[in-house]
């Protein structure tokens, strides 16, 4: 039975250009070797579908709307790529995203200039990441539990500090606001900058090599002299700082902050974007470009369903089915792609 299954798998189900030496074959082989291929295909599919379904999809206004929506998902996803690559998970990134504007607001209401209030809020956000990392690696507590607990701690902190009152966000005027969130492309450009920074960190630095090595084989990495605990703590700091920054930018863009929002509603799309993009939940494999594509996929879905007027009651069903389809396509195409990598 097992032999029959293996044999089936080895028989190409999809027509591919014959002959390993042909140009077409090599092109297909090269495409199949890209981990991001599936998410590229499903994203293109939904873009084309919504573009045909509603002509407003390709308007500049709507593209800005999509980009503003996906910026926060993307930034959290980039951080999760680092964390997931290490075989860990960070469920507090959404809470950091939501609490960092409150940190900033508190510093600002206590007289700190707005620029310094942003810096101080980011330091607080990074501090949250450090706490996550230190508890995970030094006290050997599962990062899932640590970050889930910290998620609740931050939610509680915001509720207590805000007295449950929704407030206006400072920094709404002048060039400052244009750069820090209010500008139409502001959050998108910040997200793109963070993508480049984290991609370069992962692909072009010794630290990135250490992240990959630690995620690939923790014991071997430690044996070869990599300070694996330090690597993990730094990754938790990076995701928290990035989530904090994009949270502040989004809050300035919106103009008000609401204490009643749940961090888990924010972090889960980020994790989905990373995984749909090709990052392994089990660690050892991560792709920043894939996470960006995953965020685009989710952003387009969210925007597209609203654009074509999907009823609120059907919305989550449709979104869930599409995510499932994307992941099934990902795993199935991955099986085919493995044959091309041999």
């Amino acid at each position: 039975m097992a032999r029959a299954t293996a044999s089936d798998n080895e028989t190409p189900q999809n027509p591919v250009p014959k002959g390993p030496g042909s140009v077409a074959y090599r092109l297909v082989q090269r495409a199949m070797q890209q981990r991001e291929l599936t998410v590229v295909l499903v994203t293109l599919f939904v873009i084309i579908y919504f573009g045909i379904a509603n002509s407003a999809f390709f308007t500049t206004a709507n593209i800005i709307t999509v980009c503003q929506y996906l910026a926060s998902i993307a930034v959290i996803a980039f951080g999760e790529v680092l964390i997931l690559s290490l075989g860990e998970i960070d469920l507090s990134a959404g809470a950091v995203y939501l609490s960092s504007p409150w940190f900033m607001y508190l510093f600002w209401t206590h007289g700190m200039p707005i620029g310094w209030a942003i810096v101080a809020a980011m330091v607080c956000s990074a501090g949250v990441g450090m706490i996550n990392g230190l508890i995970t690696v030094w006290l050997n507590v599962s990062s899932l539990i640590v970050t889930l607990a910290v998620n609740y701690v931050l939610f509680g902190f915001v509720l207590i500090e805000s007295n449950d009152i929704q407030v206006d966000m400072p920094g709404q005027t002048g060039h400052f606001s244009i750069i820090f969130g209010v500008g139409a492309w502001s959050t998108t450009l910040w997200a793109a900058a963070m993508m480049l920074a984290i991609w370069a960190l992962l692909k072009r630095t010794r630290f990135g090599l250490h992240v990959t090595a630690t995620g690939g084989n923790l014991l071997a990495a430690a044996e070869s002299g990599i300070r694996v605990r330090r690597v993990k703590v730094w990754c938790f700091i990076i995701i928290s700082a990035a989530s904090g920054l994009i949270g502040i930018l989004d809050a300035i863009r919106i103009g008000s902050i609401n204490p009643g929002s749940s961090g888990l509603d924010t972090v889960l799309p980020g994790i989905v974007a990373a995984v749909v993009g090709g990052t392994a939940l089990t660690g050892g494999r991560g792709t920043i470009v894939g996470a960006a594509l995953g965020a685009i996929f989710l952003g387009v879905l969210e925007d597209g369903f609203n654009l074509i007027g999907v009823n609120a009651n059907w919305f989550y069903l449709a979104e869930g089915v599409m995510i499932l389809v994307a992941m099934v396509a990902n795993t199935q195409l991955g099986t085919v792609a493995r044959r091309f990598r041999r």
Binding site: T65, Q68, Y69, A251, S261, E302, L307, G309, V310, Y316
Partner: peptide, 25 residues
């Protein structure tokens, strides 16, 4: 009438309403 899903987060609510308006001017 049309019932629009805003979502539970304020940043998402704004983009959801904007997207819905773009498709229903």
């Amino acid at each position: 009438t049309a019932v629009v899903d805003g979502g539970a987060l304020e940043p998402g609510e704004i983009t959801a309403v904007e997207a819905w308006y773009t498709g229903h001017k």
